[in-house]
Design a protein around this nucleic acid. Sequence first.
DNA 1: CCACTTAGGTCAGCTTCAGTCCGCAATAGC
DNA 2: GCTATTGCGGACTGAAGCTGACCTAAGTGG
Lengths: 325, 325
Amino acid sequence: MVQTSARLLALLSLLQMRREWTGDELADRLEVGPRTIRRDVDKLRSLGYPVESARGVAGGYRLGAGGELPPLLLDDAEAVAVAVGLRTAASGSIAGIEETSVRALAKLEQVLPSRLRRRVRALGDATSAFSFEEPQIDADLLAEVAAACRDGSQLRFSYVARDDRSSQRHTEPAAVVYSGHRWYLVAFDLQRDDWRTFRVDRIRGRVRVGGRGRRRTVPGGDPAAYVKRQLQRRGEERDGSGEPGRVRVTAPALKVRQRVPGRYATVEPDGEHACIVSTRGAWHTGFVVWMASIGEPIEILGPDELREFAHGVVDRLGAAVADRA
Amino acid sequence: MVQTSARLLALLSLLQMRREWTGDELADRLEVGPRTIRRDVDKLRSLGYPVESARGVAGGYRLGAGGELPPLLLDDAEAVAVAVGLRTAASGSIAGIEETSVRALAKLEQVLPSRLRRRVRALGDATSAFSFEEPQIDADLLAEVAAACRDGSQLRFSYVARDDRSSQRHTEPAAVVYSGHRWYLVAFDLQRDDWRTFRVDRIRGRVRVGGRGRRRTVPGGDPAAYVKRQLQRRGEERDGSGEPGRVRVTAPALKVRQRVPGRYATVEPDGEHACIVSTRGAWHTGFVVWMASIGEPIEILGPDELREFAHGVVDRLGAAVADRA
DNA sequence: CCACTTAGGTCAGCTTCAGTCCGCAATAGC
DNA sequence: GCTATTGCGGACTGAAGCTGACCTAAGTGG
């Protein structure tokens, strides 16, 4: 009975919308008898969704948190919010869940009505991120590639290699991996007949999803490990510029740690009244500036480029201050 | 029939997990005959979920994007990713969807198994945000308050007013409003017998959710407008410190706009080769520093505090550079 | 004590379900 | 053009499920 199933879903939806419903309200909404509601509630319970009920005046039904997440029934606005949230999470603003976010995003985008997709894109473009990451990656592309990995579809795209030469690739993608500041696609290149890792931000234009490919396993089994090995072999990932930035701040580590996100840098005490902040991976332009703005005396430990960059900032800012002060 | 409904949900879940399934695969997974699968697919279609099918070799079923979002069936990791994404979106990192995000978060947290809630919290705490917002708001609290508004529950909490005096409040909450940099709760204060707006970041300790309250409408009907009026009356919101910061950058507006998030500041051309960047609302410490780090000459237009602050940064950074250079 | 609300049994009438068997249709590859 | 694969849908049948109506029980708060 399609009616019954639809009603169960509708019931679930109502219970997610509001906290408390009396049986009669529900019966009214769903246009069935109250007895049927009671039976439906039983059905939901037997499906594992914990519908709590309270008797007496001011009683009613409510959906509680159970062992499993029930199907989420989102309205348009909520769906957009979820999609936008996932996109920012995927773009690396929260450590450790980028890949899961992309997976969830791929799932959502597959079934997202196109009118909502447009709204998501509009909002996403407006974001533009106060982030210190340079390569703004296209979340749509990422989701599409991740979906292809999941589905075992083939993938054709044009790729710009490190030497700036562009080439057409025909691949069977295996996994999408986030290195900590870049996205990589691990795929079997059908033309070169071997595994390759591609930087997702170097994929140009639209990707074309082909038919079903063979299921292959990445050499070694773990795509993340594979990417890591590849990057080490190539000496990439330190981002060319290399060294982490290090700064000594004359303030207690505990205080400084509150102002520095763990994702970007580590804070180590250096005596009782000072600490040393080191970036994870290569430093970026925002780092030293951020350190300068926390309002404590600092000292740059290295590398030289960092010092040079700081010099530039001092010059510009000094000029700006001198201008009218 | 509980079987049938469960199977329909499971089918939906499978179709969301992967792109293509053959009927036999599905029949195998769901432990029914292939004929039943075909009938179930018909049911899904009649429920409005567009199950696409392709005949022939390499054919199969797939779930397409329809006019409505189907119920989302997320696994644990995905649910955590969604929750974390919503929390960051709610905390204001994307303009314009904060309130919707909070609503969606309230919905999700209501049914989120506690083991997942713990994981979300752990991740959320680790975030700590490279953000220029000072008052880090507790997303859990926000979701709880928003849920109370939605459900029309009463709410008791202790509140620290602007004069630092703490008081116990017993309210019937109506709406949660984001002003652009702060969260406000609009509620009917039962003890004072009138409407009040509360800054959510000034709510202390746990809130206690009481029983059902009366449904009331905010004076004027629109909570956002009400908050705005209140803030104007009090002269708040300019954040005490007041004036927006203004900086002139010697670079084309188009170029600068890419580096400045629209949420925090507006970029207006000033001639062809320069532009003026103004913060929305009061400037914060990060602003000038950010401007200095985009690598173009700048000039501070005001206010004076901004110039003073810049001075401080120049001193500290200058000292840091001089130290070893 | 009363009003409200969930809980659940039972019965009758009706509908739907799931499996089985069938022939048909579309598609891709050989 | 042939063939294997895969979806489509009709017909039949016994079993199962659904809904509403009616009733009683029981918990809750004023």
